[in-house]
Write a protein that binds this DNA or RNA. Structure first.
Lengths: 108, 108
DNA sequence: ATACTATTTAACCAAATGGTTAAGAGTTCC
DNA sequence: GGAACTCTTAACCATTTGGTTAAATAGTAT
């Protein structure tokens, strides 16, 4: 597994959990402290802390310690990369969908 | 977890594995049989079969049994959905990157 | 110093993941 | 019918995951 490949794996793995997606959605509005991030969830703060570590490993967030609080902000670059990766399939979309339709027509 | 949310989870989970990504990349060129999909990999056919099941659950591929062979084809719709989901962060990209830059300027 | 607040680390647990080998289940060929 | 071929299912294994509670670390306030 090449390095860039591992990086994409971490980004997509981050996005594969609904809690982490909601965290990112919250952060897309504005930076938040860990406790603010936790607020809407019913899982423990420790669980949130672990999710943040996953997001941090994927470089989807940045952390800035402000006194005893950690300010967490979205770092959107990896999202762009994931977006571009999926986009690389785009040229196949219409073609493949057409082929699938024709195929289904023929075989039903 | 809402239904649509679970669906996105399955798509992103599918994409989080480099073997599965390579499988999809292969299928983006043309439909392939299971053995053709296996060819470039050194893992067992069983392992490939399991990956295909994951991709099928996420509706990223379609399977058509042709005699003893299974013809696998890319079904790009979920990729579009994932693409759109990530795109929903797009409006934040430039804004957030700017904010991050300014923030880093101020605090270094 | 003490107590309170914010967050992480440690230790644990059940379930899921990605792989293996061995054993089916259909399909084709002789 | 039986051998060969394509693919899946079953059973197993080590590691990772997403959660928990209890303890530790770090900063603030009194």
């Amino acid at each position: 597994m090449v390095k860039s490949s591992m990086f994409l794996s971490e980004v997509f793995h981050s996005l594969s959990d609904p809690t982490r997606r909601k965290i990112l959605e919250g952060l897309s509005k504005r930076p938040l402290t860990v406790s603010e991030i936790k607020a809407p969830f019913r899982i423990s703060l420790v669980a949130i802390s672990k999710h943040l570590k996953v997001l941090e490993r994927a470089k989807l967030i940045r952390r800035q310690k402000m006194g005893r609080e950690h300010m967490i902000r979205l770092h959107p670059q990896p999202l762009r990369d994931a977006h571009r990766y999926i986009e690389s399939f785009k040229k196949d979309w219409s073609r493949q969908l057409d082929a699938l339709e024709k195929f289904l027509e023929r075989n039903t």
